[in-house]
Nucleic acid binder design. Structure first.
Lengths: 350, 350
DNA sequence: ATTAGCACTCGTAGAGAGCAAGTGCTAAAA
DNA sequence: TTTTAGCACTTGCTCTCTACGAGTGCTAAT
């Protein structure tokens, strides 16, 4: 059933006001604001209907109205106007790009920080856990008792560990190790390491097989580690400023969401993977008073991560959405279709 | 001025009780508990004196007593009994060691997690930011448009970045880059890069000088990044369960401490560096109701980091201290005097 | 279809009473 | 001299009650 123009106006005004003040909004309040040229009684009638239609609700009988999830949904889907980022805000966001960082991970971290500051909500960025298939191994001699073990995965991501060993190592030996690994462990993920490949690996090591156990353990660790570092969270305390979370129990629930980063990343990515664009979620994850805006980051057609904002359900969606969209548009420009990010190079006539 | 035996007993009982319940403790309560065989009136008199001496205080005139910072101090410095870790608890802690991890960083992370779970307070681990002097550079070819730039610092720590470039690279060229870096940038820290060394670096690159800007920027980034990943925090929400933090404002203050990890690491390390052993801090950092137990981690005479617990000022110090000490003792055993950590090797007759 | 008016509902803030906990002090007992 | 019982006093907390204000739905008039 379609909403009449006036109902839309009223719904929008209610939500705008509620977002601004956090107070349930009554009919009288609306007669003053907005371009509604009707009396409070008329508005009351309309609000009554909006309530029956499921867009508004009353905290208690004699209070004003508050939007329902459905109300917010229609609001973000078409009612709210577009937010124009101020020059100030653009400056802050652009700074993220100007301080060129070569890795998208760090770029997203700074963006997340900037967005949290700008919107005054909690912001987070998540890098999609990379495919776990090892493609190639490299070793690098550090000193007599340690070396760097580098694993290059099929998706291009790289992991490495500084391995310290008791026995002494030398570059040639490390070369042997790398070769043995590449011969036996290439393309594996954690599950398909077989006893056979392990044995073959040890065999190829020849005289150096003493190091096998250590190396295998490190590789196992690399394959299974969840890169919890790739989850960034910024401005958690900001949430606590909103009355929605002034009850410690609620605050606890909200913050608990970020506590287990691994788990959080999974939740976020599972919601972002199938989406092409920005999505808005209300009152999920046992957080009835929270809203989450989620923006997948897609580069060259692949979802590499997501950046998002969490705030009270009545957060300023238009501002949040504008910020996230500005970021993702510019990330696109910077990373699409190329693996390099330098303007210096473009300037050179080469 | 020395405390009489009886005063000590009373002070200890008060603090024990307060830690357990969080309620101010009155004179009557103590007649029941502990081995004080005196009446409440006597205890009242003693408490009165303890108050004048600065060990106890009253939240308000008709309430029981609460320990002051001074009270806690003497308590942890000698009054409290030793806590014996239960078999359960030992099991949890030992698991951290049994799942052998080669890097102390990860070991401390798991320990921090275990300790937080065990004590039900927030726990953290910090790895001391390594000396920022580059000692040696290495490059590793990944593919035509990217390579790994590895920086080995004077203190043995290693940083690396996956550098993506537009131009195509090959192993020989990367060798040139590494050589040029080692020739010009060895031993530098962020401040003493001179224009001259930059120019010399470019010169040594010869035909490949196009890559100079990118490489230099990455190195600058590596030298200045603060390894915020090396701060681990576990169980923040646990704090919120204690009445001390049931006021959102207080909770906010407490959590804000962990918000800026870089800043937090600095604070922690500046307190740990000069200490050889465990220290206890009460009501610092604008957190009047919080206590922090800090345990520096020293390996081969060098303070490599710290692990600690933050809880309400009335936290169970004896348990916390026992856990931290158990951990640090075993870390010592595992890392002291050797760079390897494998029992597998020890078992071998080699 | 809109609006003014009104009775009604409900949450909140404030005042006051009563209660419980705990103290300091005094005077008696050990 | 030290300890103890007894008591008056202080103070915060909880409960109830009231008044108030905000906002509603409904009815009747425009």
């Amino acid at each position: 059933m379609e909403l009449s123009e006036r109902k839309k106006k009223i719904l929008k005004s209610v939500i705008d006001s509620y977002i601004r003040t956090g107070e349930p909004v009554g009919s009288k309040l609306l007669t003053g604001t907005s371009d509604l040229q009707v009396s409070s009684a008329t508005i009351r009638n309309e609000m009554n209907e909006l309530e029956r239609m499921g867009y508004l609700e009353q905290p208690h009988a004699s209070a004003g109205r508050v939007p329902t999830a459905e109300g917010y949904r229609t609001y973000v889907d078409g009612l709210m106007e577009q937010y124009l980022l101020s020059l100030e805000e653009l400056k802050v966001l652009n700074e993220v790009f100007n301080y060129k960082v070569s890795e998208i991970e760090r770029l997203m971290e700074s963006a997340s920080h900037a967005i949290s500051e700008m919107t005054n909500y909690t912001s987070f960025s998540v890098i999609r856990p990379s495919g776990r298939n090892a493609q190639r191994f490299e070793t690098l001699y550090i000193d007599e008792h340690s070396f760097l073990l580098i694993m290059i995965c099929t998706d291009g991501s790289i992991r490495n560990r500084h391995v310290k060993v008791r026995m002494s190592v030398d570059p040639e030996m490390l070369k042997t190790v790398a070769d043995a690994l590449n011969a036996t462990m290439s393309g594996v993920c954690s599950e398909d390491v077989t006893l056979q490949s392990v044995l073959e690996f040890e065999e190829r090591l020849g005289a150096h097989s003493g190091i096998a156990a250590t190396v295998l353990r490190v590789i196992y660790d690399m394959l299974n580690s969840t890169d919890s570092e790739k989850v960034h969270i910024d401005g958690v305390t900001k949430l606590l400023s909103y009355p929605e979370f002034s009850d410690v129990e609620k605050a606890k629930d909200a913050i608990a969401l970020f506590e287990d980063r691994r788990d959080f990343a999974q939740k976020i990515m599972s919601r972002s993977t199938d989406e092409k664009g920005l999505t808005v979620h209300f009152g999920e994850a046992d957080l009835p008073d929270a809203g989450i805006v989620l923006q997948p980051i897609i580069i060259n057609g692949k979802t590499v991560g997501a950046i998002g904002v969490m705030g009270p359900k009545r957060m300023d969606y238009k501002k949040v959405i504008a910020s996230l969209q500005y970021f993702v548009d510019n990330v696109g420009k910077q990373f699409e279709g190329e693996s390099e990010n330098e303007q210096e190079h473009r300037k050179k006539p080469e």
